[in-house]
């Protein structure tokens, strides 16, 4: 099998796995904060988190590139202090992917947490349990289907990312080239056999993940996506 083909698949998989892992760690406190705290700017924060769901990926990619640029404060700080340039690098597409996929992790978790009665967490507090214990032992197990949905959707979404990865990563083979972009390239080069291989693999992964979500949610007798 073509080594470039395998490397591209590995980068795709690595990007999706790392993005999902980071978002599991980041998405849980964000969803908890939005579900259980009150602050005036909450609608604005929620709107910002959900923006990638409605904006074209090229718009998000454009802004991310601007932020990464050494001509702007964050990019300059990264370059001067840490000697890191995020544009057109794997770290750059990873960070962009985390930002872009955040709503796919947060929204299912948030709707799951909001569907739980307040008395569950209150009962746990009156039993002397901390907020952390309550979250991991009472709240999270009772939104299990939302959690599985969030993880699977985030992963599936990352596997198929095109616009933002192309904008931020620049389609560099062996560095930032992922399967969805490779399909486009192979079709342009009239190399349909390789495009077919990429497409079948992406189709298979996405289908299996969605089938898992549906069967898990059917088992829990509820469908909690968005």
């Amino acid at each position: 099998m073509d080594i470039d083909f395998l490397i591209t698949l590995w980068i795709t998989l690595k990007l999706a796995l790392l993005t999902t892992f980071i978002l599991v760690l980041l998405g849980m406190p964000v969803a908890y904060g939005l579900a259980y705290t009150k602050f005036k700017a909450k609608p604005l924060v929620e709107a910002l988190i959900s923006m990638p769901m409605v904006l074209p990926p090229s718009v998000v990619g454009y802004y991310v590139l601007l932020v990464y640029s050494p001509r702007n404060a964050f990019g300059a700080w990264l370059a001067q202090t840490l000697d890191i340039r995020l544009a057109f690098s794997f770290s750059g597409i990873l960070l962009a992917s985390v930002l872009f996929s955040l709503p796919f992790m947060v929204q299912p978790l948030l709707s799951g947490l909001r569907s739980l009665p307040d008395s569950l967490s209150e009962a746990s507090y009156t039993l002397g349990k901390s907020k952390t214990t309550t979250f991991f032992r009472v709240l999270l197990p009772n939104v299990k289907s939302s959690f599985i949905t969030a993880v699977a959707l985030t992963f599936a979404h990352c596997i198929g990312e095109f616009g933002i990865v192309l904008m931020v990563g620049g389609n560099i083979p062996g560095e930032t080239r992922v399967a969805s972009i490779a399909i486009y390239d192979e079709v342009q080069a009239l190399n349909f056999a390789l495009a077919d291989q990429y497409a079948i693999i992406l189709f298979g992964i996405s289908f299996v993940l969605l089938a898992v979500i549906y069967s898990v949610n059917r088992k829990n007798d509820q469908w909690k996506v968005l």
Binding site: P117, S119, L120, E122, A123, S124, Y125, T126, G128, K129, S130, V138, P141, N142, K144
Partner: peptide
């Protein structure tokens, strides 16, 4: 003082049993 530090027992109207 937070609920956790009051050593009270509270029986809720909807029982609030943990389904998991």
């Amino acid at each position: 003082v937070a609920s956790q530090n009051r050593n009270i027992g509270f029986m809720f109207q909807d029982y609030a049993l943990f389904p998991n």
